[in-house]
Every structure is written in structure tokens, then in C-alpha cells.
Nucleic acid binder design. Structure first.
Lengths: 115, 115
DNA sequence: CTAACATGCAACAAAATAGTTGCATATTAT
DNA sequence: ATAATATGCAACTATTTTGTTGCATGTTAG
């Protein structure tokens, strides 16, 4: 049987919730879009042209980093942020799991109705 | 060309951000898991056994409903919440888009290095 | 009819989030 | 060496989120 300790399930959930929460913001979503487009960018580059202060952008980047969605590397006087795809792939997996659970529920209902 | 007005892009982003934000919470993730497992459930059913008050659960459900992740229907004295898969499917699509953008960026880099 | 149940609404408090500003420090360009 | 650039740290405010409690109202069971 798939018995999985509730604690383990809860821990997983907390982790996924943190990733979802990190993506749950316009600004951060825009940053992810920008970074997923290619090369690593510095905080200044990511701030330039935006209406938010550098510090605000920095905080958002740290949230994304904390969730494992981006990585930062210091390079001289700037710190470069780079998209880290694994976490997003993993999240897709979670959504897949939820969808599949639903599909299976539907087909169970279906076979019940049909008998 | 794919020129897409920035406003349209921003609007899309806001919408997705709202869905991510709705999923960015342990309790709500647990509710989604429960509801994706099958039959619609009433607020009382979803509250029973949990350590949160009924009102707290209700608020969470309304957040999920606002994001289009669940639907509610009144049935007599109770209101039943049901998982609504389309929104989650759509979100998976967004994550796919981001991943693909990254993959394409990688292959562009690859072909650049190789020449 | 009346009691039990299910929910809604509103006011409130505590905590987390988002953003700003000012100042300090490290790195690079001239 | 100096100035310009890039970032970090801390304090502070405003807003949003999370949760509670109390009370009112609608619905169903006995």
C-alpha cells in the first residue's frame, strides 16, 4: 500500500507551497521570464528600466533563490542570477500528479455509473 | 513577428501570478489535494479533523475559487466545493512555456559555442 | 415546531510581504 | 588615487494575509 507518513507528505507540501508562493507575484514572474530567456543577469541589469527600486528587485530575487527557482553567483562586484530549471520541472510534475488524481477519480466515477 | 502588446503580456502574468499565489500555501495545497481526489466536499467536511477554524478554511476555499482552481455550488444548507482542472492544466502550460524558453536558449548557446 | 447543523458576515489582532530610504563597503574604470 | 558602479544591510512604513471570535440567518431532522 502507499502509506507514506503524513509528515513526509506535509513536508513535501510545504516545499511545493514555497515554490508556488515564490511564483505568485507579477514582478517575480517577470524576472523568471526574463531569466528563462537566456543568459544570467546582474541585479542592476534586472532593475534597469523597471519602476521598482533596486532593493525591491533584490528582495524578489532572493525569494526566487530561496525557492530554488534561480541561482546566484558572485562575479566581481556584481551578482549574477541564472534560471534553475529543475525546480520548475519538479513543480510541473506536482501539477501533473494532481491532474492525474482527478482523471482517475473521474474514471472511477465513470465505471461506477456504467455498471 | 510575435509582437504581443506588453499590456496583454502583463495581464496574462497577473492572472498566472494569482493562480500561483493561490497554490502558494500549505493549507490550500492540502485542500486541492483532497478535492482533486474525487467528490465535492462541503466546508464542514473539509474542516472536520483539521486544526483550523471553519472560517479560516472558508477563506482559503474562497481564495482557491477566486483563482479558478475550485468551484462552489450551493446545495441546500451546505456549499460544495469541487476541483476545477482547467486552471491547473493551463498553469502547467505556462510552466511548459517557461521550460521551453530555457531549452531554446540553451540550444542557441550550444550552436553558438559549436561554430 | 424546535433543535441541530451549515454557512455567511463583520470586526479585530497578529504576522508576513512589499516597498522605500539612507548608509556602508567592495570592485572597476580612468 | 578617485570616481563611478554594484551590491549589502538595516530601519521603517504601509498593505495584505492569516486567523480568531461573536452573532445572524437559512436549512433539515426528529
Amino acid at each position: 500500500m502507499s502509506r507514506r507518513s503524513p509528515n513526509r507528505v506535509a513536508a513535501k507540501r510545504r516545499a511545493y507551497a514555497a515554490v508556488f508562493a515564490a511564483l505568485g507575484d507579477q514582478t517575480r514572474l517577470a524576472l523568471v521570464a526574463r531569466l528563462s530567456h537566456g543568459e544570467p543577469r546582474s541585479i542592476s541589469q534586472l532593475t534597469r528600466g523597471r519602476r521598482l527600486s533596486r532593493q525591491a528587485i533584490t528582495k524578489h530575487l532572493r525569494v526566487l533563490e530561496g525557492a530554488g527557482i534561480v541561482r546566484s553567483v558572485r562575479s566581481g562586484r556584481e551578482s549574477l542570477f541564472e534560471f534553475h530549471p529543475e525546480t520548475v520541472i519538479d513543480l510541473k510534475g506536482y501539477l501533473d500528479f494532481v491532474s492525474q488524481q482527478w482523471d482517475q477519480a473521474l474514471s472511477r466515477l465513470q465505471s461506477f455509473v456504467e455498471r
